[in-house]
């Protein structure tokens, strides 16, 4: 696809170039087949020890992007590199050893843990598959992993159903941690948890990053959680990234009208606070037939004629802050 498909391409641990994921669908018995434009050309770079937040509303393509990066579904086009090595073209077999460095924690820890395996067996599997420790050291390593995520060593002999939601998510994190990965994709990993337990898991993820230098691609819809845990944040709308910036800049000075509206819609725990919401009309258009030009133009309060016809390019406004909007130009 490109000539740069071998060798290292910078210090980033994970990089994604012009990633596209389309799903063919048939809408009805006699209707013409259509295409869901789930991800439509996104670029991401994840540095060692960094958390990149990927936010957006339902159907924006953030989870499809995560699944494609993980290799759970093949990309339509684009380049994905892990440690500088291209992985999107690898066969399952040749990808297998590299998977050690790219792990995942899903939203629902119950459906992602095998109910018939003990927690010890669940954790032993990656240790065996990736030959992380010799067989004799496995039990010790499992106890270490459980301790690291705040569970007692005795948990190894029990089954997933014996644990609460928060504890199950700790098991899911221990499993992701087992092969000592460089990158963990967290797909709505704390979304199903109650606030008090969510705080425990967020703190755990941040502690693990500090101690082991893991990078997270943190996919979530909760803007406050993403701000808390991330270093940089990318905002997606209908398959495209509309803005990406260091978190302090993005939350204090959002540049894309969609980011601005999204942040203004978040209810704040401050009673009596004057609301300065930027109302968005209507709903997100269908990814089956995304709008021309800037995909946000149908709901954008600032849209001009140019937005309807011309796709805005991602433009660097200042170091660490890029936006795809015709109305924003560099300082």
């Amino acid at each position: 696809m490109t000539t740069r498909d071998t060798g290292s391409a910078g210090p980033e641990v994970l990089s994604v170039q012009d990633l596209v994921k389309h799903y063919p669908v048939r809408r009805g018995l006699f209707a013409a087949p259509g295409t869901v434009h789930a991800v439509d050309g996104i670029d991401l770079r994840l540095m060692p020890g960094e958390t990149l937040g990927l936010v957006g509303e339902s159907g924006c393509g953030k989870s499809s992007a995560g699944k494609t990066i993980l290799g759970l579904t093949p990309p339509t086009s684009g380049v994905i590199r892990l440690n500088g090595r291209r992985i999107d073209t690898l066969s399952r077999g040749s990808m297998r050893p590299l998977r050690k460095d790219l792990q995942v924690v899903f939203q629902d820890p119950f459906s992602s843990l095998n109910p018939r395996m003990t927690v010890g067996d669940i954790l032993a599997e990656p240790l065996r598959n990736f030959d992380v420790v010799p067989a004799s050291g496995r039990d010790g390593r499992i106890a270490e992993l459980l301790d690291r995520v705040g569970l007692p060593a005795a948990a190894a002999g029990r089954y997933p159903y014996e644990f609460s939601g928060g504890q199950r998510q700790r098991i899911g994190i221990a499993r992701a941690l087992a092969p000592e990965p460089k990158v963990i994709v967290c797909d709505e990993s704390v979304s199903a948890l109650d606030v008090s337990v969510q705080a425990q898991v967020i703190n755990l993820l941040m502690d693990l990053q500090r101690d082991f230098g893991i990078s997270y691609l943190f996919i979530a819809h909760d803007l406050a959680v993403v701000e808390h845990i991330s270093h940089r944040v990318a905002v997606m709308y209908l398959g495209r990234i509309v803005e990406i910036a260091d978190k302090a800049a993005l939350y204090a000075r959002p540049q894309h009208p969609y980011t601005e509206a999204l942040l203004s819609a978040v209810p704040r725990p401050e009673p009596g606070r004057a609301r300065t919401r930027i109302p968005l009309k209507g709903d997100v258009p269908s990814p089956l037939n995304p709008p021309s030009g800037c995909r946000f133009h149908t709901r954008c309060p600032l849209a001009i004629d140019r937005c309807r016809t011309e796709v805005p390019a991602m433009t660097k406004l200042r170091p660490g802050h890029s936006v795809a909007c015709h109305l924003r130009t560099p300082d």
Partner: peptide
Amino acid sequence: FGALPVLGSSA
């Protein structure tokens, strides 16, 4: 309240 991540925390 203490467990809640609040928007604007990075300011």
